[in-house]
Amino acid sequence: MSSKYEAHWKDTSSLTMITLLLWFFFSIVVHAFGSSLNSISFLGFPLGYYMAAQGSLLAFVIIIFWSAGRQEKIDEKHGFDEKE
């Protein structure tokens, strides 16, 4: 396959790696330390509780919007965006 495809896939893969690292942090790492985080107060909430009730969820929403925007730029850069 031509290098055009390879270059696009390389950029896409690294963006996906970064996105998955952020995902891993907010879905797993944060909750591995839930009990210790609970001694910190955030907006009046114990932080461990807050991350499970709101924090991680909000982070996921932001991650997906951000990642989708970045991916659009990658597609445009390599000329693979859809002509509408």
């Binding site: 907010f26 879905s27 499970a52 969820l57 929403v61 997906i64």
Partner: peptide
Amino acid sequence: AFLTGWTGGYV
């Protein structure tokens, strides 16, 4: 954990 799981899956 259900809240985290049922939202994180969308990533």
